[in-house]
Design a binder for these strands. Structure first.
Length: 104
DNA sequence: CCGATGACCAAAC
DNA sequence: TGTTTGGCCATCG
């Protein structure tokens, strides 16, 4: 682990169920750092761990910018669609239906 | 070693 | 009501 904070973020991301997505701010809040969404993004930027579904992490508008070093942007969308995530015509995730509520 | 930056969000003015 | 600034932690130069 690069830092205990990263570990906490990774742990939360791993708990995101298939077919759902979470925002950076949401993950930061669950980690106990509501203002640390930036660090979440940076943690995801280094998602060298294949056990971390960083493709389920999107920005507040549902933009899928994840895994630049790991996947191609369109591949992330394909993965989410395969899990049942609904995409809007503009290429963003329908957060109204697929945003993770924090529970199972 | 220190300064700047970064897949961002939310409160404040 | 919209726009601006602050903030958090780690990595890069």
């Amino acid at each position: 682990m690069s830092g205990y904070v990263f570990g906490a973020f990774y742990d939360i991301v791993r708990r995101i169920p298939a077919g759902k997505v979470a925002t950076y701010g949401q993950i930061a809040r669950l980690a106990g750092m509501p203002r640390c969404a930036r660090t979440v993004g940076y943690a995801m930027a280094g998602c060298h761990d294949s056990s971390i579904p960083c493709h389920r992490v999107v920005d507040r508008f549902g933009g899928t910018k994840a895994c630049f070093d790991t996947y191609a942007p369109r591949m992330q969308q394909a993965l989410l669609e395969a899990e049942g995530v609904i995409f809007r015509p503009d290429g963003t995730v329908d957060l109204e239906q697929c945003l993770w509520d924090g529970f199972f």
